[in-house]
Design a protein around this nucleic acid. Structure first.
Length: 477
DNA sequence: GCATGATCATGC
DNA sequence: GCATGATCATGC
């Protein structure tokens, strides 16, 4: 099938123009009579992407190390959208190539399998619909994408974090929450999908590079707004080079701002040599160690009610140089900022609450689909205050953290127990803090009369997931 | 002193 | 209107 390509595979513009004919159409609509439905794959996982490759772009689905359009170095990615109350958003993470633990550690980012294959993407976002045959899914966005240099910097940090774990013989401890944008997500039919790793006898779960779902939302938003990428090649040259040139030898492009968000890092020049994104963030807090809430509020001239429950978050944003908006990097990377206030003797009085349990939803969910799994596999950023002798909270430290896999297993048992009790309509015997696990269930509501409907239509008090204070305390050490 | 239940203040 | 982050109140 060499000469049947309806596009010039040596020309990026030709590929893109051909792909653009998919916009606002379905596969069935563009292929018309040429489409032989009997050949359609079952549109299971990856099945739809394979159909697009085979029937529209006329190349056989493959798992080559090179990009799908090797002549121009473009990788095709087909990925679903879903409807949310704020419009169309990403339905799931974008999964790249499987990480070959035995090989990836031998490389630097520039020569990595990830960089070679995914330097430039042709993204096809389609609207997923459970009630439709996959060939009738409508493509909503067709676009080329390169990671902007500011994002690529974080992705390089992420790649290094992942590869460092492999080099340390800890591939089995990898977790999607270890990193900010580029994750190592599980890939395989089950937890039994194991692979060998080079520096440990222990088998590790198969994982692939992936892009956080929240990151995709920024691409989606910019696409709908018609914002073009402005790429400065010299910044790539700097990021990917190991030459003697310093940052000052390059010119820098302005970032494309997204409404309502502001980045912590305004320019590549903000990074000190060798500094990672997380190191830069932590450094921002250094000069404010020991400062009290009030001192910080006055210093930054923040207008806020001292009783406001979000006051710590507002203060933290300002320390990181973000004014009254959401933090772009944390939003894209789905990083959860949590503040903790220690007593003056160093103990932690309060446990940490999460969302209320949606009784009608949890009974239908698996662990991996559940809210609690989703939140516990994120990267956390803890900002720790401690009360002084006069009970004035003062900033003491900050840290990034991800729940280790063995704790996640404890949380899974806890969640299964909770789900089963809700299925059984037993709302009075949830796991308590005194059961000394890592999390518990406790009320969280306006008052005792604030109720939520159960799967069987009864009303029950609203309760939430909590991480035990004792567990948080151990994390902070 | 801590476990547990309860509820407040705010912002979306 | 209510979810969320945060913290209070009580009793063992």
């Amino acid at each position: 099938m060499t000469d049947i390509f309806p596009y010039n595979k040596n020309e990026k513009t030709s590929i893109f123009e051909y792909a653009s004919q998919l916009k606002d159409k379905s596969l069935r609509e563009v292929l018309g009579d040429k489409f032989d439905e009997t050949k359609a794959h079952r549109a299971g996982k990856g099945g739809f992407g394979n159909m697009v490759e085979e029937f529209y772009f006329h190349y056989a689905p493959n798992s080559d190390a090179q990009a799908d359009f090797p002549e121009v170095g473009i990788e095709l990615k087909t990925t679903p959208l879903k409807v949310s109350k704020n419009g169309l958003v990403s339905k799931e993470r974008l999964v790249f190539n499987i990480i070959n633990y035995m090989e990836e550690h031998k490389e630097v980012f520039k020569t990595s399998s990830f960089c070679k294959k995914n330097a430039e993407l042709l993204l096809l976002f389609y609207l997923h619909d459970n009630d439709k045959n996959a060939v009738d899914y409508i493509f909503k966005i067709v676009r080329l994408w390169r990671f902007p240099p500011m994002d690529l910097k974080i992705i390089i940090d992420d790649w290094n974090t992942i590869v460092t774990k492999i080099r340390e013989g800890k591939a089995h401890e990898l977790s999607e929450g270890d990193t900010i944008y580029l994750g190592a997500c599980t890939k395989g039919a089950s937890k039994a999908s194991l692979r060998a790793q080079p520096f440990s006898e222990e088998k590790a779960m198969q994982r692939a590079f992936s892009l956080k779902s929240k990151y995709l939302n920024f691409i989606i938003e910019q696409s709908f707004q018609g914002i073009e990428q402005q790429i400065d090649e010299s910044e790539y040259a700097y990021l990917l080079s190991e030459s003697e040139l310093s940052r000052e030898d390059y010119e820098y492009s302005k970032k494309v701002a997204t409404d309502g968000f502001e980045p912590i890092v305004k320019s590549i020049q903000d990074y000190k040599d060798g500094q990672t994104f997380e190191e830069l963030v932590i450094t921002k807090f250094d000069e404010f160690k020991g400062w009290s809430e009030i001192e910080l509020i006055n210093h930054f001239e923040i207008e806020i009610n001292p009783q406001a429950k979000n006051r710590y978050q507002v203060i933290c944003n300002r320390i990181m140089g973000v004014t009254g908006k959401k933090i772009e990097e944390f939003e894209k990377g789905d990083v959860v900022l949590k503040t903790v206030v220690l007593q003056n003797n160093g103990t932690l009085r309060e446990s940490m609450s999460f969302q209320q349990i949606k009784y009608k939803e949890i009974v239908l969910e698996s662990w991996e689909e559940s809210y609690f799994y989703q939140v516990l596999t994120k990267r956390f950023f803890f900002v720790v205050f401690q009360k002084d002798d006069r009970n004035v909270p003062r900033l003491v430290k900050v840290l990034f953290w991800t729940m280790p896999n063995h704790d996640l297993e404890v949380a899974e048992h806890f969640w299964q127990d909770t789900k089963q009790k809700i299925v059984d309509e037993d709302f009075n015997n949830f796991i308590k803090i005194s059961d000394n696990q890592i999390c518990h269930i406790r009320p969280k509501a306006q008052n005792a009369a604030d109720l939520m409907e159960t799967a069987l239509g009864r009303m029950e008090k609203k309760k939430a997931y909590w991480l035990n204070a004792g567990y948080i305390k151990r994390i902070l050490k």
